[in-house]
């Protein structure tokens, strides 16, 4: 029976993923050939082996990162799980100052998943990787029984090369350093929440999901020796990232509310849901800590880049053995900016 199935073309309109598509047989080969090869095509993937073999970089140090993507819904305003997975891993590598080189992708697909959606996600991954110039050089797919996964999970890994002499690390913030944010916050989280079941509201806000390595390259070129560290404020938002830095570096951070760019629609959505934009996820923003001497040239370079037009100096690293992140509010008062307690749940209170 299954032999007939193998001979037929994949139905990319109405077809669905079946267990055979992950069984290692011809169905799997067909799935890869029909969907992933064309979407992700590059010479390394084209080698067609169980691994990709790439040349060693001539200098620098290797940066490597891995991440899993379980976003729900899979398609959201401004992106989808495929582009998000590519951007997310590129950004994790780029935050070390590295030039990202290669990605790997592994998909866990639930039986019954529409092939049309799978194709769309693969295309979107391919487009994101081509736009970033970082190829997906190796991949894997597995199919699990219906009910064992929420449609589709993606896990990506990537490697990159840190230029010689550049050392960025979360423990390098020092009192007096400046804190820089690359643009307006909360867009990704709000775009996701707007499409969640039971919360539905309509907004023009799109996810900011984007690869940041080009912006990073411009920052390194402009202020490399002055840079202490970079982080992308994803889950937990700016609040979580600043607290991580404060703890890792053993310092305090003071930010000024009025300097933080937030779109008015994001504020409105946060008011509606009872959440704080500082704790909402971003997928296309970064926070950099820079010594005061480099802050000016860093900001200028960021603002000259299309992804950093709204870059702003938002705060200063201070001495504080309690490692507090504090904010001067727009009212001139002070408050703590804390980690989110637990998951981000909309409040009615």
């Amino acid at each position: 029976m299954s032999r007939d199935l193998f001979r037929s073309r994949l139905d990319l309109v109405g077809g669905r993923v079946e267990m055979t598509h992950g069984a290692g047989g011809r169905a799997m080969a067909q799935l890869i050939e029909a969907i992933f090869q064309p979407a992700l095509a590059n010479d390394f993937l084209g080698q067609g082996n169980d691994q990709a073999v790439m040349p060693l970089p001539r200098s620098g140090r290797l940066a490597m990162s891995t991440d899993g993507y379980v976003v729900s819904p899979l398609f959201f305003p401004g992106g989808d799980i495929g582009s998000l997975a590519v951007h997310g891993t590129i950004n994790d590598i780029a935050m070390s100052g590295a030039v990202p080189l290669y990605l790997s992708v592994s998909l866990i697909i639930e039986e019954g998943f529409p092939l049309a959606d799978l194709d769309r996600i693969a295309q979107s991954m391919g487009a994101a990787s081509r736009a970033a110039g970082v190829p997906v050089v190796t991949g894997d797919t597995k199919v699990v029984e219906r009910g064992k996964a929420d449609g589709l999970f993606i896990s990506t890994a990537g490697v990159g090369v840190v230029p010689p002499g550049l050392v960025l690390s979360g423990d390098r913030a020092r009192p007096g350093d400046r804190v820089v944010l690359s643009g307006s916050i909360g867009d990704h989280g709000i775009a996701i929440l707007s499409s969640r079941e039971n919360l539905e509201f309509e907004t023009a806000i799109l996810s900011d999901s984007v690869a940041l390595h080009d912006l990073v390259a411009a920052m390194v070129a402009a202020a490399g020796p002055h840079l202490r560290l970079m982080r992308d404020p994803t889950r937990g938002g700016v609040a979580a990232t600043l607290n991580e830095i404060a703890h890792q570096s053993g310092v305090g951070i003071v930010i000024e509310e009025g300097t933080i760019p937030v779109k008015s629609q994001v504020i409105a959505a946060c008011d509606l849901l009872g959440i704080d934009p500082l704790t909402v996820a971003n997928e296309g923003k970064l926070i950099a800590v820079v010594d005061p001497a480099g802050a000016g040239s860093l900001l200028a370079a960021m603002r000259a880049h299309p992804l950093g037009g709204e870059a702003a100096l938002i705060g200063t690293v201070v001495e504080d053995d309690r490692h507090f992140v504090q904010m001067r509010t727009a009212f001139g008062g002070g408050r703590i900016v804390d980690w989110l307690a637990g998951e981000q749940l909309p409040r009615i209170c």
Binding site: V254, V318, Q326, G334, I336
Partner: peptide, 13 residues
């Protein structure tokens, strides 16, 4: 932060 030590009011960006 208002309990002892550093006050945010002293810190300006």
């Amino acid at each position: 932060f208002r309990s002892p030590a550093a006050s945010v009011a002293a810190e300006r960006v």
